Computed example of a mutant assay.
Amino acid sequence: MHGPALSGWLLMVLCAVAGASCLSRTRVTTGEERRAARAEAVMGFGMAAMAVPAALLTPPSWAWAVYAVLFGGAALQALRSVRFGGHHLHHLVGSLAMVYMAVTMAPGAGHGGHGATPSAGGIPLLTGLLLAYYAFYVLRSAGRLIPVAAAAGAPGGGLGRGPQPELALACRLTMGIAMFAMLLTL
C-alpha cells in the first residue's frame, strides 16, 4: 500500500498477527464460528500481503489479479453463507472491498500500481462509502469491547483454552481499523 514505510510495516504486522489469531481460533471453535474464523484468517493474511511496503517488495503485475481472484472467491463464499446470518454480511463487504482495492492498485488502473507515486485512485464515492462503513464498524466493535459487569457465576480471567468472544471481537476490530487505513491510502 502507499504511505510511509513504517506505517506499512505496522499494518502488515498487525494484519498478520490478527490472521494468526483468527487461525488459532479455528482450533477451539466449531460450526459457524469456525467458518467465520477461517474467513477472518484469510482476510488477515491477505491484508498483510497487500500491506507489504513497496520499499521492501514490489509485487509483480499479476499479483493484483491473484488478490482479486482470492478475495472474489472469499466474497462468493461469504455470499453463500449470508443466509446463515451472523457476521457473513460483513465478510462479504470486506471481501468485495479487498477486490476493489486489488483492482484499484493494479498497474494501469489509474494511478500506476503499488510502486508508483501515490495519487488518487478508485472511485471516490465508493471509497468514501467503504470508509464510512468501516468507521462505523470500528466504533461499534470498540463499543462492544468496553467491559461490562460480569454475570453472576461467569468464569473469570478468559485465559482458558475454550472460545473467547472478546478475542474474536478484538481481531475483528483490528482488521476493521487496518481496512480503514488501507482504504485511506487509495
Rank of each mutant, 00 (worst) to 15 (best):
M101S: 05
V93K: 04
M43C: 15
I146K: 14
I177D: 12
V17A: 11
G19V: 00
R38Y: 14
P124E: 06
L11F: 05
L92G: 05
R161E: 00
I123H: 11
W9Q: 08
V93T: 12
G122W: 03
A65F: 06
L173G: 09
T104R: 05
Y133F: 15
T29V: 00
A48L: 11
G19S: 05
A78D: 13
S24N: 12
T26S: 01
S7F: 13
A120D: 11
G113N: 06
G85S: 12
V138A: 09
A116V: 01
A39P: 04
T29P: 00
A116K: 02
P163G: 02
A51S: 15
G94N: 09
L57T: 11
F71A: 01
A74N: 08
L76E: 09
L129D: 02
L186P: 07
A37C: 07
M175T: 15
V42A: 14
M1P: 00
R83T: 13
A168M: 03
A170W: 03
F84G: 15
L169Y: 06
A116G: 04
F45G: 10
L126I: 01
Y137M: 03
A97K: 01
P124T: 02
V28N: 00
L89T: 11
A116M: 03
P53M: 04
A78V: 06
G46F: 07
A5C: 01
A154Y: 03
C22D: 12
Y100M: 05
L167H: 03
A78P: 05
M182H: 02
P4C: 08
M47I: 13
M182P: 00
L96Q: 03
L159T: 03
A20W: 11
L183T: 08
A102R: 09
A55D: 09
P4T: 12
A170C: 04
G121F: 01
L169W: 08
A109R: 07
E40M: 15
T30L: 04
A51L: 10
L169D: 10
M50K: 10
T117A: 14
A48V: 04
E40Y: 14
I177V: 15
V93N: 11
A63C: 10
T117V: 06
L131R: 03
T30A: 10
C15S: 13
G162D: 04
L56Q: 09
P165V: 01
A106H: 08
E40G: 15
H114F: 13
V99L: 09
G160K: 02
M50S: 11
W64I: 03
S95Y: 03
S81E: 13
Y67W: 15
A16L: 10
P165K: 02
A170P: 01
E40L: 12
L126V: 01
L14F: 09
P165L: 01
S81F: 12
H111L: 08
R38I: 12
R27V: 01
V28W: 00
L57W: 15
T58S: 12
V42G: 13
H90S: 09
P4K: 10
A54I: 00
S61Q: 06
M179C: 08
G46V: 04
T127R: 00
M12E: 13
M47E: 14
V82E: 11
